[in-house]
Each structure stands twice: as structure tokens, then as C-alpha cells.
């Protein structure tokens, strides 16, 4: 096999992958190994492939992805904690021809924003909700989330989540799948190239649903939080596969085509 030089690799005809222009050049604020960066990329690639950058308004949450608007090269609004679906509801009602999505973590969507989430889903707002579930409050330093697994340690459940006193983990995705307003509800992950492809397909389907005015699409991405879980990125992915996936099984929960 012939040697290939650095200069040859950089030739445009040898380009095999390029960061989408819908991501800014700003360095991500996420921990190395975190699923947020990959999910950001997938969402932005979908918008680029659908050529809807100029028609899309994103809603950023409070949590690790509070600064999503620094990385996503689209018009964005930053919501108060948990309120993103309320903002998205108004944006879509007032701009029905635009594409509107929220990007939220588990504390934001499944704790403080439970009401906004359930009612936006129940009204069947024609929006996309992307829900990153890593079972912990990442930004504030690893506190117990509504999605924290039974027995799982966090800074506010230092001896493990005791479901007798701290309650059960909330399966928000299964819950919203029960509501007539949701059209597509799925749970995915981004820890392997195969899962990244599946998640991208799911997010594409969600935005296509919106294009067809079908109703609310809800895409959960089960993710890791190596810093919050006090593990290396690799350990955290293994732990996620062994512990999170049995409790939060991957796959489509509701598909109304």
C-alpha cells in the first residue's frame, strides 16, 4: 500500500467527514466522554440535511446544556428551569411554519418542568422534545435526579437512592407515550457508532413528523455522566449499559405513522 502524506490527506477529494456548519467553533463546555456533544452534533446534522436552519428555533434548558445556544448555530431562546416546552408551545403557535424543538435534561424535563412537559405533550404541540437522561443533576454537581436509579449514589443520596424515602425514578418517556398528543416516542443512546446512527434516524423522524404537522415527537437519549457518576468515560458507558439500559430500555415506545 502506498504511503499517504499529511498534505494528501488534507486534499478536498479525500475529505470523509466534516463538522457541520450548524455547530459553532466554540469549544464544548461538556466533560470529555459526555453524550451531550454527540447529541448536539446529531441534531444539528439533521437540521442541515433537512436544510431548515433558517426556519428553526431551538429552546435551551437550565442544566449542563444551558449554553446549547453557544454551540448550536441557530436562533435560540434560553428558558427558565423546566419551562422550555411552554416557550416552544408559544413559538410554534405563533410561527406555525417554523421548526421548533426543546433540548432538555432530566432535572429540567422530569422534575421542575413536569407540568410543562406533560401538558405540551398532552396538547399535542407540533414540536420536537429532545430529552437527555443521565440520571443525575450534572451542572450543579451530581445531585439526585428524578431519574436516578434505585440505590444509585449521588451527592444528595450519598448512601444510594432509598426509594422508601426518596421516591422512585420517574420514567417520563413511558408516561408521555400514554398521552394522545404524542405521535412518536422513542428512547435511544449515543455511546456507540451504531447507536449514534439510530439516534440520528430517530431525531430525523421527529423533525419530519413536525414538517408533516403530525404532533409531538419525544426523543429520549440515555446518556452517561462520568463526572457526576465519578467514573472514567469508559467506565460510565459500561455502567450505563449494565444499569441504565435495563431500567430505561432502548427502542421505540410509540410510533403512530
Amino acid at each position: 500500500m502506498a504511503e499517504i502524506t499529511k498534505e494528501e490527506i488534507r486534499q478536498p477529494e479525500n475529505l470523509v467527514y466534516k463538522k457541520t456548519d450548524l455547530l459553532t467553533d466554540k469549544a464544548l463546555s461538556y466533560c470529555p466522554g459526555c453524550g451531550h456533544g454527540t447529541t448536539h452534533r446529531i441534531v444539528m446534522e439533521v437540521l442541515e440535511e433537512m436544510d431548515i436552519q433558517d426556519k428553526t428555533i431551538g429552546i435551551a434548558p437550565v442544566g449542563c446544556s444551558v449554553l446549547a445556544y453557544e454551540f448550536m448555530n441557530i436562533d435560540m431562546q434560553q428558558a427558565a428551569h423546566g419551562r422550555a416546552p411552554a416557550l416552544a408551545t408559544a413559538v410554534k403557535r405563533l410561527f406555525p411554519e417554523k421548526f421548533v424543538f426543546t433540548y432538555q435534561g432530566d432535572g429540567d424535563l422530569a422534575a421542575i418542568g413536569t407540568a410543562e412537559t406533560i401538558h405540551a405533550c398532552n396538547r399535542g404541540e407540533n414540536i420536537v422534545i429532545i430529552f437527555i437522561n443521565n440520571g443525575i443533576y450534572g451542572m450543579t454537581g451530581g445531585q439526585m435526579a428524578p431519574t436516578t436509579l434505585p440505590g444509585m449514589k449521588s451527592s444528595t443520596s450519598p448512601y444510594g437512592r432509598d426509594i422508601k424515602t426518596m421516591g422512585n425514578p420517574l420514567k417520563m418517556t413511558e408516561l408521555v407515550a400514554q398521552l394522545p398528543g404524542t405521535i412518536y416516542v422513542t428512547r435511544q443512546a449515543v455511546h456507540t457508532p451504531g447507536h449514534v446512527r439510530k439516534t440520528k434516524k430517530a431525531i430525523r423522524k421527529a423533525f419530519e413528523n413536525q414538517k408533516l404537522n403530525k404532533g409531538l415527537s419525544f426523543v429520549e437519549v440515555v446518556s452517561n455522566c462520568n463526572s457526576g457518576w465519578k467514573m472514567t468515560p469508559r467506565q460510565s458507558n459500561e455502567w450505563m449499559v449494565e444499569n441504565m439500559f435495563p431500567f430505561y430500555p432502548l427502542g421505540d415506545i410509540k410510533v403512530n405513522d
Partner: peptide, 26 residues
């Protein structure tokens, strides 16, 4: 004009935030 009965006062004011951020009279 859009008129929407929200699930709470909290949701209503945040709908106003979203609409106002679009340059709409809300």
C-alpha cells in the same frame, strides 16, 4: 391572534417569554 389557556400561571408567563422572543405582541 392566538389565544391559549395554559396549564398554569407559570406556563402562561413562559409562553409569553417564548412569543415575545419571536418579536410578537404577546
Amino acid at each position: 391572534m392566538v389565544v391559549l389557556q395554559a396549564e398554569s400561571e407559570v406556563a402562561a408567563i413562559n409562553m409569553v417569554y417564548g412569543g415575545a422572543a419571536c418579536g410578537k405582541r404577546v
